[in-house]
């Protein structure tokens, strides 16, 4: 365990000392922030207003709280995965610098090495994402705070689960990379693709039906939905109290992906937790297994 602890500390230090890796990991969240600040926020605000039936009104605070919740959930849904991918690139850099070769000539167990990368990426990503969460909460407070204590707690659970998922997925993908070119390619694909696939740039409900069905098989989708639920539930409750019919609220929840459907069947919140948690366990298992197999093959 002590060996693992020292390796984890080494990996975390290296990530934060490598300014290239650190800032690359923040590119996607920054792009998202710029998109919201320039036009995406207004687009959502306008479309939400348009979905309110004529003759009914919603307070600005509830509306702004909901738009802020949308930004909050989008940012974290992307951040938790893209930061994990960048942080986990250390695994590939170790192959390129020869550090990995240096580690493999020692009696350390391959599974310990694999887990040390996993845990250190988890810690680095969590540190960044928790800071991002707190900053988002601060932003939400300025726009309209409707989060209950339970919601706040659940948001942190969502972030933890999504970071664990992003770390496990990146561990598995990065295991097969070994050059700077591959790092750049995967970094670009993840940065640009994941934001789209998880519905951060555009709600999944707006995608063509076929694509929605494919996306329903991706565990990360449920992470985004959980975040949406917990960051926006308070605003929807406030709107309901202001007299907006629950049928209208449901439509709005559908539009912003608070409700997800697997082949037209609604997915319960607890099922989303199980899917995300289960996929984390599965991915970690596969990752450790391939590490061990690759060593045995030698």
């Amino acid at each position: 365990m002590k060996t693992m602890g020292i390796l984890i500390r080494r990996n975390v230090k290296l990530f934060f000392k490598d300014k290239g890796l650190f800032f690359t990991s923040l590119i996607t969240p920054m792009i998202l922030l710029v998109l919201y600040a320039t036009f995406l926020g207004n687009v959502y605000r306008d479309s939400f207003f348009m979905s309110i039936p004529e003759g009914m009104t919603v307070s600005d605070q509830a509306m702004e709280g909901m738009v802020a919740g949308q930004l909050f959930s989008s940012l974290l849904a992307v951040c938790c995965v893209t930061v994990a991918f960048c942080s986990n690139m250390l695994m590939v850099q170790d192959k390129m610098t020869g550090a990995r070769k240096d580690m493999l000539i020692t009696p350390v167990k391959p599974s310990a090495l694999a887990l040390s990368y996993y845990v250190s990426t988890l810690i680095s990503t969590l540190l960044i994402c928790v800071v991002a969460t707190l900053m988002c909460m601060l932003y939400v407070a300025t726009q309209g705070w409707f989060l209950s204590a339970l919601d706040v707690g659940l948001i942190f659970v969502d972030v933890l689960l999504l970071v664990m998922f992003g770390t496990a997925l990146s561990s598995l993908v990065n295991f097969f990379l070994s050059s700077q070119g591959q790092i750049s390619a995967v970094g670009t694909i993840v940065s640009s693709g994941y934001g789209f696939l998880c519905g951060a740039y555009m709600p999944i409900s707006q995608f063509p039906e076929g694509l929605q069905k494919v996306i329903a098989f991706l565990p990360g989708t449920y992470g985004t939905s959980l975040l949406r639920r917990h960051t926006m539930r308070g605003s929807f409750l406030a709107m309901e109290k202001e007299g907006i019919p629950s049928s209208v609220i449901k439509v709005m929840e559908d539009v912003v992906d608070c409700n997800l459907y697997f082949y037209d069947k609604p997915v319960e919140e607890w099922t989303m937790f199980v899917i995300l948690g289960g996929s984390v366990v599965f991915l970690i298992g596969v990752y450790v297994l391939i590490h061990m197999l690759s060593q045995k093959r030698k």
Binding site: T3, I6, L7, R9, R10, D102, M103, P107
Partner: peptide, 11 residues
């Protein structure tokens, strides 16, 4: 320190 830990040498 990090390399020594790989041989179980620490503290």
């Amino acid at each position: 320190e990090s390399r020594a830990a790989l041989y179980g040498i620490y503290g």
